[in-house]
């Protein structure tokens, strides 16, 4: 009897619609976010994450309305990421009903923003999203750097050191995405996940690359993740959340069934 590992379906939302890009290109429409969130809640999702990828500032209010609507009928933790740059952005999301916000690029450009946010709203609602890519070559010791702009811009910052720094600045959780694996359906980068999870004291959510249910289980068993995040395998109804949980439980992982 202990704490369950979590399954977190992620909804990439663009202008109020759920979409999922493959390596951030080729976006496919996957439906109404409120409808999808309802389904995930019924299927036993442990949390739901919304990633707002709306490009234009004018349309960013749509995500607030989505969160408001979902929060009034879905009573599990909700996280919103994408475009969170100011304390006011955070306040708006929390007031709309989000429980946590994901901070990504803004943390890279201004790390102090993470400590200000944690002091103001509490570490429990500050998730720092880290997009990492392997930069070591064959034969070298494994090394990952963080990338911004959807994986296009290198920063030269070591991913493990960055994760440790973000925790010391007040991050309550790390959402770790492998940019090498995102959208590939080849499974999580387990070495990266394990390295980060073992380096930090806070929970780590593994993300990027899930193509089947064994990938989810491996993220926990080998990657030592506290939670696993996936999008496309759930959106297109290949698997239900419940199937995923049953499968992970059958691999000996503690789950909320």
């Amino acid at each position: 009897m202990s704490l369950a590992k979590r399954i977190i379906p992620c909804l990439d939302v663009d202008n109020g619609r759920v979409v999922k890009g493959v390596k951030f290109i080729d976006i496919r429409d996957a439906g109404d976010p409120v409808e999808v969130a309802r389904r995930y809640d019924r299927e036993g999702a442990d949390e739901i994450t919304f990633l707002d990828i709306t490009a234009t500032h004018d349309n960013r209010d749509t995500i607030v309305h989505v969160v408001e609507q979902v929060a009034s009928e879905v009573f599990i933790p909700l996280t919103v990421g994408g475009g969170i740059r100011t304390l006011d952005d955070i306040r708006r999301m929390l007031n709309a009903g989000a429980d946590k916000v994901g901070i990504n690029s803004a943390a890279v450009f201004n790390p102090e923003f993470v400590s200000e946010a944690a002091q103001r709203f509490g570490s429990q609602c500050i998730v720092v999203a880290i997009d990492a890519k392997k930069v070591s070559t064959t034969g070298e010791a494994d090394r990952w750097e963080i990338f911004t702009h959807g994986g296009r811009k290198a920063t030269g910052i070591d991913a493990i050191a960055w994760a440790e720094k973000m925790v010391s600045y007040g991050a309550g959780e790390i959402l770790l995405t492998s940019m090498d694996r995102d959208g590939t359906r080849e499974g999580f980068d387990l070495l990266l996940t394990r390295a980060i999870s073992e380096a930090v004291s806070v929970p780590v959510i593994a993300s990027g690359g899930v193509g089947n249910l064994d990938h989810l289980a491996e993220g926990v068993i080998t990657g030592k993740a506290d939670a696993v995040l996936a999008a496309s395998i759930f959106h297109f109804a290949e698997y239900t959340i419940q199937q995923a949980k049953q499968h992970m439980a059958s691999r000996g992982i503690e789950m909320r069934l």
């Binding site: 442990d46 429990q124 959780e173 073992e198 004291s201």
Partner: peptide, 21 residues
């Protein structure tokens, strides 16, 4: 306490976050 671990020796994270019995 810091450095708590479960019965299999896995490090327990702080905050205690998620669904517990």
């Amino acid at each position: 306490a810091e450095d708590l671990s479960d019965s299999e020796g896995n490090k327990l994270k702080i905050p205690h976050m998620g669904w517990n019995q």
